[in-house]
Design a protein around this nucleic acid. Structure first.
Lengths: 223, 223
DNA sequence: TAAAATAGTGAACATTGAGTAACTTAAAAT
DNA sequence: ATTTTAAGTTACTCAATGTTCACTATTTTA
């Protein structure tokens, strides 16, 4: 093969570009909301015209679907890791969610989760909702597992995961990649904090770097 | 006075109607996002036409502003109560936020907080951001007060309040007034859970009704 | 009762933004 | 070199929706 396969094939290039579109679109969707996002803006960030996007995605709804799907996939992958590496229900959740949050605010660049009702339509909406429900069921099982193994206090699993997911998803609203906190620091500190809420034996002190640091942080959001 | 003032004056009626518009609009804004919300839908819920709304609000942006303002006012009022009744920083936060969340999902009917960047524009955006920053500063002071008085573990106050506000605001995404949980139950359980994350002496068990209940809850959202 | 203010309607207007069609250039294959 | 395919652009259509205007009905006031 020419160049020892260092050059992506046309098919690979297509996929690379599609990923770039998803990454940029996710950020705009997240900041402006799905209806507030124009394909013109997404295209502009990629330095192409709106119509060029249609070579890679079927339409706006499909693009929104791909963004959600990407986030769900990242979540699932990290929960796989959590389940493999964690010993207790609590640890599995902590490891999985730390990885998920880190990728959300880091690699993927603060993307979307906010589900505006009816923003996604048709079959694509059904698929995403199905995936999301599966994910939430999985999380709830881990909570219940933690209650059984004694790592988590008796708690309503629905409330527990919604509290955690709320705090986690909210991060994408205020986190700024140009700020002083790295994705790693934020996710460590945030997950330590939220899971302490239902840990059976909460630590006396918080140990994540951010909590130990002395300085005051601005309260400013990104807007 | 006729009817012993039982009949609202024209000026009062105007304000009553404006409140009704805000209440309905807030729910739609919250579910559909600001850009996804049409004035037609808001009007339809009130059984009037779109144009009628313009007698009560300047334009869509102004209506969005009023919704945010309403939420901020409710938050501030409840924090006043929290500061008056709570003994420690932790208690002040717990009392205040419980009241806020209860009103959000109850009386006001699950309204908006989601700030889509640029959804609000101009002076109105500036005002809301200023109010929000004031609120967050207030919350952070209470966290620091709690750390000083020993009710809260040493913690980064920004992270603490954003975790809490994330969990709290997320409730408006999944709470259904037609479900089995009352606003009271949800807010008690949620605030107990999230504040336990930074309490200096976390309880061994959760005491809110929802956590004690045995049955499994559906994971279904409202969409 | 007549006049004036209030509350609301329906039609029209202007703008925005998703999606399409025809054309242009660049790259690849034969 | 010529043809074919890929990638992208410009110019357009069309639907949705915020906003305004002119008009009607209703209520209040004088």
């Amino acid at each position: 093969m020419r160049w020892a396969n260092a050059i992506p094939t046309p098919t690979e290039q297509l996929e690379i570009k599609r990923q770039a579109i998803i990454r940029e679109a996710a950020q705009v969707f997240n900041r402006r909301g799905s209806h507030g996002t124009t394909l013109d803006e997404v295209a502009e960030r990629l330095a192409v015209t709106k119509t060029a996007l249609y070579r890679y995605v079927k339409n706006k709804n499909h693009l929104l679907y791909l963004c959600h799907k990407e986030a769900m996939d990242i979540a699932a992958q990290n929960m796989d890791i959590g389940e493999a590496e964690g010993q207790t229900g609590l640890e599995k959740i902590q490891i999985g969610m730390k990885g998920y949050l880190r990728e959300m605010v880091g690699t993927m660049g603060v993307p979307v989760i906010i589900l505006e009702e009816k923003a996604l339509t048709g079959d694509e909406a059904k698929k995403i909702i199905a995936i999301r429900d599966t994910f939430e069921t999985r999380m709830r099982k881990l909570v219940n597992e933690g209650v059984k193994d004694g790592s988590i206090v008796p708690i309503n699993s629905k409330l527990a995961i919604f509290a955690m997911l709320g705090a986690v998803h909210w991060v994408t609203k205020w986190y700024s990649p140009s700020g002083v906190w790295t994705p790693e620091e934020v996710s460590d500190a945030m997950i330590e904090l939220v899971t302490r809420g239902f840990a059976a034996s909460p630590s006396k002190q918080l140990t994540a770097d951010i909590h130990l640091a002395p300085m005051p942080q601005s309260t400013k959001h990104n807007n």
